[in-house]
Computed example of a mutant assay.
Amino acid sequence: MGIVKQTMRLDKLLAHSGYGTRSEIKLLVKRGGVQVNGKKAKDSGQQVNPEQDEVLVDGEKVVYREFVYLMLHKPPGYVSATEDTRDPTVLDLIGGEYSHFDLFPVGRLDKDTEGLLLLTNDGKLAHELLSPKKHVPKTYFARVSGGPVGAEDAEAFREGVRLDDGYVTLPAQLNILEPGGAGTEARIELTIMEGKFHQVKRMFEAVDKKVVYLKRISMGSLSLDHTLALGAYRELTEEELTGLRPE
């Protein structure tokens, strides 16, 4: 996925394809392990075109990809960051075969929140999905206590509720699956068009309810693959990726 038209240094291509550090690749070239278009490469800094030139490492064809897109079913207990000094991050769940891509999470889910999280190294697409101007819808499933959750709550969310810091949310769509009440939890789906800090939890606090379980099930056109176990991930299909891209 991703189209590469420009030339680039051979060592950059190989490093980005998982063949080691620049210094390791320099040694690889020096011992004659790299061929470009049938000839042994002599300089790890030579220019190559990933679309047009055939590069082999010890006889194996190098397949270069500029961008990678992973759908992760985030489990609780992991923070949506590339590094953290206290808690494990979502990148700790990703296998080493993707380590050279410098992946990052697109947006964030709270540490205790589960569900759909997109990981990529495509900064342009991430910006399109996260830009406040784009109003990309995000849908969550939640269990809520303090119910019942009813039509008044749906109307309040549709009009926008005032959060604890005074911010009034954009209109949101509340779908009540089970209203709850009398000691039972409500089950709802909520679609919001923005991504303020702890927004879903704070919206329910604004109507005197409490979110006790939260799971993101979709973001834009991308829906969580329910065959993915908690902590599992897979690459997006071409169809899924096309649906995410701006028209």
Rank of each mutant, 00 (worst) to 15 (best):
V62R: 00
V63C: 12
E66D: 14
F67P: 06
V68L: 12
Y69E: 01
L70E: 00
L70R: 01
M71V: 05
H73G: 06
K74Q: 10
K74V: 03
P76M: 12
G77Y: 07
G77H: 08
G77K: 11
A81D: 07
A81I: 08
A81R: 05
A81F: 07
T82H: 11
T82K: 13
E83Y: 13
E83W: 13
T85E: 15
T85H: 13
T85Q: 14
R86L: 15
D87C: 11
D87N: 15
D87K: 15
D87F: 14
P88V: 09
T89N: 06
T89R: 06
L91R: 01
D92M: 09
I94C: 06
I94F: 04
I94V: 13
G95I: 10
G96E: 15
G96L: 12
G96S: 15
E97N: 12
Y98I: 08
H100C: 10
D102Q: 15
L103D: 01
P105M: 02
V106Q: 01
V106M: 03
L109S: 01
L109E: 00
D110T: 05
D110M: 07
K111E: 09
K111R: 14
K111P: 02
D112H: 12
T113E: 03
T113C: 03
T113Y: 03
G115T: 05
L116A: 03
L116G: 00
L116T: 01
L116D: 00
L117A: 04
L117C: 05
L117D: 00
L118T: 02
L119W: 05
L119G: 00
T120D: 03
N121C: 10
D122W: 05
D122H: 10
D122Q: 09
G123T: 06
G123D: 06
L125D: 03
L125R: 05
A126D: 07
A126H: 09
H127G: 12
H127K: 14
H127S: 12
L129Y: 01
L129I: 06
L129H: 01
L130C: 09
L130W: 04
P132T: 10
P132L: 08
P132G: 08
K133D: 12
K134T: 14
K134M: 15
V136N: 02
V136Y: 00
K138I: 04
K138C: 02
T139E: 09
Y140Q: 02
Y140A: 02
F141L: 14
